[in-house]
Every structure is written in C-alpha cells, then in structure tokens.
Simulated assay, not measured.
Amino acid sequence: MTSKEMLEIAVKAGDSKRAEDIVALDVEQVSLVADYFVLMNGGSKRQVQAIVQAVQDEEADAGVIVRRVEGKAEGTWVLLDFGDIVVHVFQEEQRQYYNLEKLWSDAPLVNLTSWLGETA
C-alpha cells in the first residue's frame, strides 16, 4: 500500500467522525520521519479518542499496522505512527499551542478536497 493510499484512509476515517480542520502536509522532502503528516482536531477528549479509534480501525482493515500510539488516554493530542504517515489528532487548544503547521511550514499542503465529505 502506498503512503498516499494510507493518507486517504486516515483522512476519510477522521472525516467520518467529524474531525475538524483536517490538513495533510507532504513532509517527504523536509523530514526523514514520514511522507505525510496529517493534522485534525476534535471538540472533546471523547471525540478525539473516537477519531483515533476510527483511523486505527480503518487502517487495520486495509492491512496497515500502527507502529506507535502516544497520548490516547489523555485525549488532548494523540499521535498515530503508521510509518509512512503520522496522524496527529488534537483538541483545538493543543493544536493552536503546538502549531505544527508553522513548525513544518516548508512542507506543501496536500489537497484533500475530494476525500472530505460535504459540510452542512
């Protein structure tokens, strides 16, 4: 499975649990860690955990193994490491505080429009 396919699965899974402000950064040229970073947020600890579970479940269904999970119990910033992609699920306050988009500003944004559902 390609990293782009893994990215699509993660984005759609987050969107299915109403994750907000989903952004993907193509970090392949600026980081040795992964090809993509995915950032999204939920409105509460419970929603963050539901988003994380959905991403894990959908990736597992596709045969992708999570290498590491950090922060799931706290539910304020959860990191899911799938090797080629790293998914960050935040509560809004933590996302604003850590501002990973600024930290990785050299990485181009990935257009996710076709993968995201309609907003009402």
Rank of each mutant, 00 (worst) to 15 (best):
L7I: 10
E20R: 11
H88L: 05
S44M: 07
L7F: 06
F82C: 02
D84T: 08
E101P: 06
I65A: 08
A19N: 08
Q91I: 07
D21L: 13
E20S: 11
T76K: 03
W115R: 13
Y98P: 15
K12E: 15
E59S: 14
V38S: 02
F37R: 01
K4G: 04
L39V: 11
M40G: 09
G117K: 12
M1F: 09
E58C: 13
E8T: 15
V27D: 05
Q94K: 13
Y36T: 06
I9P: 14
G83A: 02
V64M: 03
L100C: 07
R46P: 06
V23M: 07
A60E: 10
M40Q: 12
F37G: 01
L25S: 05
A107H: 11
V64L: 03
R46S: 10
M40S: 11
W115N: 14
G75W: 00
Q49N: 09
E8Q: 15
E92M: 10
Q94P: 15
V27W: 02
T2E: 01
I51N: 05
A24F: 12
F37P: 01
Q49Y: 10
R67V: 11
A120I: 15
G42T: 05
G71K: 00
D81W: 02
I22H: 10
E8L: 11
Q47D: 01
M6I: 15
R18W: 14
E118K: 14
A62T: 14
Q29R: 15
M1S: 09
V27H: 02
A62P: 13
R67W: 06
L25F: 09
E101W: 01
L25Y: 07
Q96P: 14
D106Y: 10
A60I: 08
R95M: 07
E5A: 12
A19W: 06
S3G: 10
V55L: 06
Q49E: 07
V52N: 02
Q47R: 04
K4T: 08
G43L: 13
N111T: 07
V78M: 01
K12A: 13
G14I: 11
E70L: 02
D15L: 03
R18A: 15
L25N: 10
K4D: 05
A73W: 00
R95S: 06
V27I: 12
V23T: 10
S16K: 04
L109N: 15
V23K: 07
V33G: 00
V23Q: 08
Q47F: 01
D26C: 12
K4Y: 07
S3D: 05
T119P: 14
M40A: 15
L80E: 00
E28K: 12
N99R: 06
R95T: 03
S105G: 09
S3Q: 09
Y97A: 03
L7W: 06
V48K: 00
T113C: 14
F90V: 03
I22S: 12
I51E: 04
N41D: 13
A73S: 03
A19S: 11
G14N: 13
G63F: 04
Q56S: 10
V27Q: 03
V87G: 01
V69A: 07
V27P: 04
A10I: 14
E28S: 11
Q53E: 12
D81G: 06
S114F: 12
V87Y: 00
V33D: 00
Q53M: 08
V64W: 02
I51A: 10
S114P: 15
L116T: 11
S44H: 04
F37S: 03
V33H: 00
L103M: 04
G43K: 13
V78A: 00
Q96C: 10
K102E: 07
L112Y: 08
V23R: 06
L79S: 04
